[in-house]
């Protein structure tokens, strides 16, 4: 429908409402949001909604096929694994580990990155330039290599994986936030505020943070997809979550030896990792576009 513009419409909505309007116009972004929220809900509610105990080994029901095949049982929609554990419950439980833990690591990394980035961004001169270039290069140590070293020092386990991922994500955050702050500091309104007598802390909290949070959100979404993939990859390599833990990556490597008998037990965790990362990427892309459009309007 053609839109009439009889009067000059003024858009006086709050920035957040404008952002949501632009965001909601993109179907893919909305789909990502729905998917993301359902994963979030799952990871919070997983212990309550699993139909069976994900660690209970039922030796009368080993390698039960999924319920859509003729031998399957409707109580076990995806069947059971080689130890008789319900696959659906394990998948649900896995969202807490892979998705929930990734969220936590990104949050922790973000907070640390915010503090360090603010310190780096508010300082000036040689110190700041040196810091920046140094970070540029620390960024280049492959995250998996860093994780391997941390695992070598602390030993394998889910908790150490989390530390490794936090450390691997940190340089990106520090670097991104530092650059965003440096960009803001050049703006006229910062100079004006400074002339009013504002100190560094006031400039940071009242001007800079409100102006860069959008960028931070986009950065976090990118970090989240990396975190999910890293946690799953470490689990797959056996360096992260250990055997009985129902982490998606570890589940894939557990079921590798029964891939011919029960392909579902490899296919579904992988699909879940894929869906989780896709939801985060859709959300991040949608946000990026929405932010850009809001700035233009």
């Amino acid at each position: 429908m053609a839109k009439f513009r009889l009067y000059l419409e003024e858009n006086n909505r709050s920035p957040l409402a404008q952002l949501w309007r632009e965001f909601a116009r993109q179907h893919s972004a909305l789909f990502g949001l729905v998917l993301f929220s359902s994963f979030l809900l799952l990871s919070l509610l997983a212990p309550l909604i699993t139909p069976h105990d994900p660690y209970l080994q039922n030796d009368s029901l080993l390698l039960l096929p999924p319920s859509w095949s003729e031998q399957g049982l409707v109580q076990y929609p995806f069947g059971t694994d080689d130890l008789g554990r319900d696959l659906l419950s394990r998948m649900l439980k896995g969202s807490t580990y892979t998705f929930g833990l990734a969220l936590l690591t990104v949050l922790a990394s973000l907070l640390a990155g915010l503090a360090l980035g603010a310190l780096a961004g508010m300082s000036r001169g040689v110190k700041s330039s040196f810091f920046n270039h140094l970070l540029d290069l620390i960024l280049t140590i492959p995250s998996l290599l860093l994780a391997i070293i941390i695992v070598a020092i602390l030993g394998p386990g889910l908790e150490n994986t989390a530390w490794a991922v936090i450390l691997a994500l940190l340089p990106q955050f520090v670097h991104g936030i530092r650059n965003a702050i440096a960009e803001q500091l050049k703006q006229d309104y910062v100079t004006a505020y400074r002339l009013d007598g504002a100190n560094n802390w006031q400039v940071l909290t009242r001007l800079i943070i409100p102006n860069i949070w959008e960028k931070i959100t986009v950065m976090s979404s990118m970090a989240l997809s990396t975190a999910i993939l890293d946690i799953a990859a470490l689990g797959f390599l056996g360096l992260g979550a250990q055997a009985p833990t129902a982490e998606w990556g570890a589940m894939i490597s557990d079921s590798l030896d029964i891939i011919y008998v029960a392909p579902v037990s490899v296919a579904v965790p992988g699909l879940l990792i894929f869906a989780a990362v896709l939801s985060v990427n859709l959300l991040g892309d949608g946000l990026k576009v929405a932010i850009q459009k809001r700035r233009e309007s």
Partner: peptide, 18 residues
């Protein structure tokens, strides 16, 4: 591109091998 960007590489490799 978005799909390829989101694929967990080890799973993708397993699919292709299979």
């Amino acid at each position: 591109a978005l799909v390829g960007y989101s694929l967990p590489i080890f799973w993708w490799a397993l699919l292709l091998i299979m």
